[in-house]
Write a protein that binds this DNA or RNA. Structure first.
Length: 271
DNA sequence: CCGGACGCCTGTCGGC
DNA sequence: TGCCGACAGGCGTCCG
């Protein structure tokens, strides 16, 4: 599930419940996630205060005084803030129990999520140190994309989904932004004009921002910290709409796999 | 370095 | 109704 807007929604939802609070203990029911959770994490966080919460790419960062708890939601992860005595379900793998009687609970049916304890400096962590810019930052724009696309022959869709190029753009928002920019997802990244990349970068920013304002996209698993879904699914123009009419021209939308992922596009409006 | 394929894991859905 | 394969929002790793 979670692309940048869903992770950002989770961050904004949990932040008021966690910032400044003290951790009683970490309860891990399932250690086998994307990477096994080392048991050393439990002792590292117990009794510590949560100073601040941040997001980098699709990672949620809970900053303590002496290091960072780094959390990824994978494909099916979601976070809720609940009373610590609320009975856990089958896929509720981790509770971060606070001293006020509440807990942050990670649910992740597919177990592609992860939890790391990272001593400072956080940016030196191997999973973070080679990432591209944040799409909503000033460091990301059409000129940057154009420059990075030189000599790249792979499809533009894979290019904008590559976290070394830009972070946070997953399959849903890649499809949506390419449609909005009128670019065919299969076009080689190196064969797109600068002006079209400027348009694409603007649409990536706009669609991510719009999705954040709607609380993200809920297709299956994703819920916000209070258990409610996000409402951006209703605004999706092409994702999941193979065979339906193009919102621009009415021609049936195509569905095709590009790089192992389903792609949706209009073969007339996207070139 | 680049690009494509694979695998991690569970749940759901469509077809037979 | 049951079984089986395909597919699902991510991403590190391996291989050519």
């Amino acid at each position: 599930m979670p692309e940048l807007p869903e992770v950002e929604t989770s961050l904004r939802g949990i932040e008021p419940h966690l910032r400044g609070r003290w951790i009683l203990r970490l309860v891990v029911r399932q250690r086998q996630l994307r990477w096994p959770i080392p048991s050393t994490v439990d002792a590292a966080v117990a009794g510590r205060q949560i100073i601040a919460l941040r997001r980098r790419a699709k990672y949620l960062l809970l900053e303590l005084e002496h290091g960072t708890l780094m959390l990824h939601l994978g494909m099916s992860g979601s976070l809720r803030v609940l009373a610590a005595d609320c009975p856990p379900g089958a896929h509720d793998h981790v509770d971060l129990v606070l001293t006020d009687g509440s807990c942050l609970r990670l649910r992740d049916p597919r177990r592609f999520g992860s939890l790391h304890w990272v001593p400072p400096p956080i940016q030196a962590h191997p999973l973070l140190c080679n990432l591209g810019p944040e799409p909503l930052s000033d460091a990301f724009d059409g000129n940057y994309l154009y420059r990075r696309a030189r000599d790249r022959r792979g499809a533009v869709k894979g290019f904008i989904m590559d976290s070394h190029i830009v972070v946070g753009v997953g399959n849903i928002y890649a499809n949506e932004s390419l449609f909005l920019a009128g670019i065919h997802p299969h076009r080689p990244a190196g064969r797109i004009a600068r002006a079209r990349y400027i348009r694409l970068a603007e649409h990536i920013k706009q669609v991510l921002d719009a999705a954040i304002r709607k609380g993200g996209t809920s297709l299956r698993d994703f819920v916000r910290e209070d258990g409610n879904p996000g409402y951006f699914a209703q605004q999706l123009r092409v994702y999941g709409r193979g065979g339906e009419p193009c919102p621009n021209c009415g021609k049936a939308l195509r569905q095709q796999r590009i790089g192992q992922r389903s792609s949706f596009y209009c073969s007339d409006c996207q070139r």
